[in-house]
């Protein structure tokens, strides 16, 4: 994957800045319970956080889809519940039924935040733990080699691609 093809982040716009300002203001409201006196600190803090977040934007352009998020959340909750149940059963089982192995998965997602998001997400899914992410190769520690399920990883990739509005290779 030639990184030169990547779309660079365009310079920030007033629209983007005001979205971030609104989001951080909402966060402050939530954390302080809308205490009017807290704005003495909150006002400057929110302003500085907005400026800092604009400065530290990802160098690679990316976006996400609200509809993709709505589809992703139930999928993620269900599979992380399965992940919790699976590891709970194995940890409490008298014979400790595990057969760990490292597997290597070649990602079809383009470089950028979607890959990092996938690597983080699989840590909460049944039997998978991301141990290394290098270029398009993801090293996964499997709790049970018998569970190695390429289909499941590919399904997750499709979901993440939907969330980040990117296409798979």
């Amino acid at each position: 994957m030639p990184t030169a093809d990547l779309e660079r982040t365009p310079p920030w716009s007033w629209r983007e800045a005001s979205t971030r300002l609104a989001f951080l203001t909402g966060l402050w409201l939530l954390l302080t319970g809308a205490d009017a006196g807290s704005w003495v600190i909150g006002g400057p803090a929110v302003l500085l956080a907005t400026l800092l977040s604009l400065r530290l934007r990802s160098p690679v352009a990316w976006r996400w889809r609200p509809a993709g998020l709505l589809r992703f959340v139930p999928y993620f909750l269900w599979h992380s519940l399965r992940g919790g149940l699976d590891v709970t059963r194995r940890a409490l089982h008298p014979r400790l039924p595990i057969a760990p192995a490292l597997v290597y998965h070649t990602l079809r997602l383009p470089p950028g935040p979607s890959r990092v998001f996938l690597a983080n997400t699989i840590n909460l899914l049944p039997g998978t733990l991301s141990a290394e992410l290098q270029d398009s190769r993801l090293t996964v520690h499997m709790l049970d080699a018998a569970l190695v399920n390429v289909m499941e990883l590919q399904r997750l990739e499709t979901r993440v691609a939907d969330l980040f509005a990117v296409s798979l290779e």
């Binding site: 992380s80 595990i98 760990p100 840590n123 709790l143």
Partner: peptide, 20 residues
């Protein structure tokens, strides 16, 4: 306590406790 190495222990702690 029961899992044999660090990788397996990470599975247990991350997945089970987060659901808890």
């Amino acid at each position: 306590l029961r899992f044999p190495d660090l990788y397996c222990r990470l599975h247990a702690l991350t997945k089970a406790d987060n659901i808890g």
